[in-house]
């Protein structure tokens, strides 16, 4: 077979690469850099300062929004992870049932549906059943859209675990529950943890659905940032954004590393 040329040998390869990288990361870098600006400008550098971080931490609106965001993210990601784990087990280990393939598609479909459609649908649903919009509706909505994100790493992990481990457990006098509790569940744990982290970040970042299903007075961090931007730019927004960025990068990396870990 003809050996193909390495990609980097084509002319212009490194230029295109650097251009793409710049387009992706330069704006984010600018946001992060100006969060340390000493003056109230997001375009002119006036020296280094942590003042905007101090201001952001002291802002009662941001404090309330952060607490809401964390409550929603923790509750919704935990609930979504439990549902996703159950779904993965049913699909991978349950006795063959009709419509297995269909269920798999239905679990993953929300990843492809435009978020605005989901948002509108959820809003209409909550109004139709007479749910009062507020923190609870946000948590319910987040739980729903986090399920496919939690499902992916859990299902990937589970599919890598051979069934003979459960056979061995049952052969060694563990009933079905104890074979799950002491053998399968611990072996699935890295996948479950990765799914939980991913769901947590997806929930923390969400804007469109949250904006649609939240009630008056209930604000999450992305909504609070959007509200502030509409009033006018200040490096305070950069500071909050940078912190959110770091939190996201941390959890996504953690999710990736734990999900890949071999037992």
């Amino acid at each position: 077979m003809k050996k193909s040329k390495p990609l980097s040998a084509y002319p212009g390869f490194s230029q295109v690469t650097w251009l793409c990288m710049a387009l992706l990361y330069a704006p984010i870098l600018v946001v992060a850099v100006y969060s340390f600006n000493a003056i109230r400008s997001i375009t002119t550098w006036g020296g280094f300062s942590l003042a905007w971080y101090a201001k952001a931490f002291a802002n009662p609106h941001i404090q309330a929004a952060t607490i809401n965001s964390l409550v929603v993210a923790v509750t919704a990601s935990a609930a979504a992870t439990v549902i996703a784990t159950a779904a993965a087990l049913a699909l991978a280990r349950g006795r063959g049932f009709r419509g297995r393939g269909g269920v798999f598609v239905l679990i993953n479909l929300p990843l492809m549906i435009p978020e605005i459609v989901t948002a509108v649908a959820m809003l209409i649903f909550f109004l139709a059943v007479g749910f009062q919009l507020g923190l609870l509706t946000v948590i319910i909505a987040h739980t729903v859209f986090c399920v496919p994100f939690a499902y992916l790493p859990i299902a990937a992990r589970l599919s890598g675990i051979e069934t003979f481990y459960e056979d061995a457990a049952q052969d060694l006098y563990a009933d079905r529950w104890r074979s799950f509790r002491f053998v399968l569940l611990p072996m699935m744990m890295p996948g479950i943890f990765a799914g939980l982290m991913l769901a947590f970040i997806i929930s923390l970042d969400d804007f469109i659905i949250t904006n649609m299903v939240t009630g008056p007075g209930t604000t999450t961090l992305p909504l609070a940032i959007y509200g502030m931007v509409r009033v006018g730019f200040s490096p305070e927004i950069n500071a909050i954004s940078t912190i959110m960025l770091l939190v996201s990068v941390f959890f996504v990396s953690l999710s990736y590393l734990v999900g890949r870990r071999r037992t």
Binding site: A168, D171, V183
Partner: peptide, 17 residues
């Protein structure tokens, strides 16, 4: 069921936990 039979198995791939 398997967990009630007084037999034990050495599996082909060992299946150590």
């Amino acid at each position: 069921p398997p967990h009630k039979r007084p037999v034990n198995t050495v599996f082909q791939h060992y299946a150590l936990f």
